[in-house]
Design a binder for these strands. Sequence first.
DNA 1: CTGTTAGCGCTTTCAA
DNA 2: TTGAAAGCGCTAACAG
Lengths: 336, 336
Amino acid sequence: MDITIKDVALKANVSIATVSRVLNQSKPVSKAVRERVLKVVGELNFNPNSVARSLIMKESKLIGVLIPGIENTYISIFVQAIEEEFFKHNYTTLLCNTKRDTDIELHYLKLLREKYVDGVVLLTSAPKPKHIEFFENNAVPVVFASHTDKQRRFSSINIDDYKAAYDATRYLIQLGHRRIAFFGGPRMYVQVIRRLEGYKQALTDHGIEYDEKLYYPLDYTIESGYESGMKLFRQNDKPTAVFCISDMVAIGAIRAADDSGLRVPEDISVMGFDDIPIAKSYLPGFTTVRQPVYELGVQAAQMLLKQIRQKEDYAPEAKILPHEIIIRGSCIKVSL
Amino acid sequence: MDITIKDVALKANVSIATVSRVLNQSKPVSKAVRERVLKVVGELNFNPNSVARSLIMKESKLIGVLIPGIENTYISIFVQAIEEEFFKHNYTTLLCNTKRDTDIELHYLKLLREKYVDGVVLLTSAPKPKHIEFFENNAVPVVFASHTDKQRRFSSINIDDYKAAYDATRYLIQLGHRRIAFFGGPRMYVQVIRRLEGYKQALTDHGIEYDEKLYYPLDYTIESGYESGMKLFRQNDKPTAVFCISDMVAIGAIRAADDSGLRVPEDISVMGFDDIPIAKSYLPGFTTVRQPVYELGVQAAQMLLKQIRQKEDYAPEAKILPHEIIIRGSCIKVSL
DNA sequence: CTGTTAGCGCTTTCAA
DNA sequence: TTGAAAGCGCTAACAG
């Protein structure tokens, strides 16, 4: 049923080697022969079998993208950026949803290697020793997104989480807020740790004591933002502002405020993180920390591409893209 | 560097055929030998090369998922459902973003065939003759999502778009609305056509004349919902309700209403479609047509799986999953 | 039950 | 410039 290189060779009256050569332009072929081959290729509508090719070349034009889940718009945009950038260069994206589970991550990593993926983008909560070990042993190009490898063994791209959280918190403080809740994530995630540090430092720098009770560990979902909000807003010594680890969390928190009879921003300021498209359209629009998500994805792809091309010559890079505080309507000066 | 079946055979003192047999359980192998092989496999940390396997078996444990884009939460959840369901069965998902471009779709389809994908899920605006042709010529299992193949040559899964739109419109009419705008999509999409038909029929059935000026063709984004809203709400004979083709569009429309000094739902009712997670948390919560997105994804995966297993014996199925009108706060009785 | 062998479709020496 | 032939790592007859 399927046309192979053999059929082409036969019909064009050349050897399969020649066909291969004109297809890959790997060696000079006389013009006459080349044209004849190309003509037959067209006539037969021949598509080279990429699996056979992979087997020899040990490459697949496949890129693995490991993500913790895809329901967060931040992540879908990131994935979309990667897909689009790689598409331009003829690579296809393998989507691997790890659900933040190390076993699944490792499972996928193995599977990707088996499939000769040419590289992988890892968007994970924290690089585990097992990850490091894997990439050290396997020499598959990788870029870590959303955290930086301090030892610079691997490439990474991210924003400065510490500074971003610091800036956001400081902004809130400048608005007059003194009690600022932090709707963060589990403390195991480097991202959370960094942001928590930034938040604490901003507090300290402005003479505010960190209050453990104001820290809510949750995941990045609307649901958890809502639940934490419902808990927090029920208390007596409510904060005047809450800083959320993601816009999704902020959506939940705002809803919780409303359900608790609190108005945003009059009664409570809510600050988001990411600046997903919805943040702008929401009512009120989110004051949030903008991450250049799409750009992050594009550059992650480009770094990986570079790495794939340069192989051993490639020196790991650690890119930090700028964040920005976007001021919209969800945070205002504290009213006395 | 890489361990092959040969290394295992050598170390276990058996032939490579035997190793293959214990790994695939394709033929009986004596317990003693099997255990020895397994032991060596463990020691060497051997992972069979799936590319070589694909070359022979003409299967890859890969599933192609073609989608028009991923920024819409509806689609990300759909993709997530598919990924998770296939993960359980050891298939990996190839993400193909077609941007609604037929050329890209075809490009991906060819590429997927080359890679011996075991099946594809096609979420596309409309099945073009070229698609049909492709699947007819190539016998790769496929399920069309989000529209039904009338001729039942291929499997499909969807909700009843006609009825869903009909129900939504009727609900609005029952609330007293007579002028209901339809924020739809391009008329080329079957989905849009069906929903438009449902909308028109509901109008007709209640003695309301269809007004072409109330139909806004747009894409499924927040942006376009916003733009259309800004246009519509500026007019003099504003409708009292707008029915949106997606929740994303509804978000934009609501924002536009606010920017035009209109309150939702007091001044204008806005009805969404999809019931993405945000719809529930939004203020006001969206009254919307719920699609069982996740379930749609899971069942699409299951149908494909069945098809892959049964091969020629498989008879195409056309599944319709139930929709539901979810009543929340964005639509109210028309005030006189 | 186990081993030998012939490919899957393609790339790439090595000769010519 | 071109062709013959040797694999890439694995599966599946076919023998034994």
